[in-house]
Amino acid sequence: MSRRSELASPASANQKQAEMSAVVTSSPAAAAAAAPTKQRRRRVERKPRVAIAITAIFFVLLYLPIAVVVLFSFNSQKSLTVFKGFSFRWYDEFFHDHDMIASLGMSLKVSAVAMVGAIVIGVALALGMVRARSWLGSYAGFIMLIPLITPEIVTGVASQLLFKGFYIHLSTTTVIVAEITFSISYVTVILRSRVAALNPELEEAAMDLGATRWQALRLVTLPALMPAILASAVLIFALVFDDFVLAYFTTGVTPEPLSVRIYSQIRNGVRPSINAVGTLMLVGSIGLIALALVIPRFFGRKGGLDILSGE
């Protein structure tokens, strides 16, 4: 009876389901419903030109500025508006600019340390939040989301005021501490759903087979979470590497992180070598994303990696 009524309102019925039940039931009602199903499919399969146009505009707006940066990084002239010819001179200039290289090194260092720190704290927090039997777990989960929605400029100013308030000298350490604080939420948000979805019998099985609580965590739980952990690690590295606001407010003197250095250079007039730096950062980011797509293969999982769910 319920199947019949489902067919009677084809607009609400899932198309595949309607087709399947049409095959199963050979009642007149089912046969009557089969015809509109076919028509509906034809309408869906027709390519909507508006949708194609909107998609095209979206991609042009998204990638044109980046394409311009990449193109002008190979310009042989100093002009930022006219492309004269192909050359590597701006890459050459960048690689001979010791301050820039030092800043790049600083950015890599900050990103790497912040990534490790945020992963360790974030994973522990996710495990604790899911397993806490008290009301604290759900409250912590809510508080966790606040850094994600707070404007970064507020976090930046607040961090600087905090450090200054405690007479802490702004340095690389302060940048790292601020970046870790800012990143923990991302790790926890990604990991939390994965921990909740984990079969509790896995850890019980490990302990049943003689593992201690710590061994069960190390040998069973963490490996099961590894794809999600690696995905959030890649995400955090990328986020911290190109973070400007927080770094700007919490960094000490030299060498400042790359994003801060680029910003201060632009204030004194834009040099084309900025384009070269931008292009290199782009290549690096694409490399990271490719890595995130390849990593799950090592765990025998099919398909790509959704960076937000860690699946």
Binding site: N199, E201, L202, E204, A205, A206, M207, D208, L209, G210, A211, T212, V220, P223, A224, M226, F299, G300
Partner: peptide, 18 residues
């Protein structure tokens, strides 16, 4: 559980996929 000479076959099997 790790101090009991008892082992369990779980309903979900709980086989370690990694």
């Amino acid at each position: 559980p790790n101090q009991r000479n008892v082992n369990t076959v779980f309903q979900s099997y709980a086989v370690f996929d990694h």
